[in-house]
Amino acid sequence: MPVKCREEQRRLTAWVEGELDHHRAREVMEELDRRIDVAQPRELTVDLSGLTFTDSSGIAVLIRAHRRMGQVRGAMRVVNAPSQAKKVFQAAGLERLIRFE
């Protein structure tokens, strides 16, 4: 599952697509870490419009990206989360930590 990224004026957008489970989580985390480290963005937008499935691995990925953005003093938001993903994130209370739009 590729993580497509686009950066413009220190605003980084990452599209996480396909199925996100434990099998793919490490790869996605490492790619997001690398992109954040290189771009040092003021804001990270994670676009989940192409995400077809996630389980609690998706929670771990978002928490890690959120922590990383905190280290570079940037903001983070998640957009276009499909209903299946939203339900998983809500079960974990993730909206208390991360901004969903």
Partner: peptide, 22 residues
Amino acid sequence: TPLFTTGSEERSGMGFTIMESF
């Protein structure tokens, strides 16, 4: 218990919580 995990960073400790709620 929510957030409890003995796993590495790819695990959020929310697995049983999700099974329970779904």
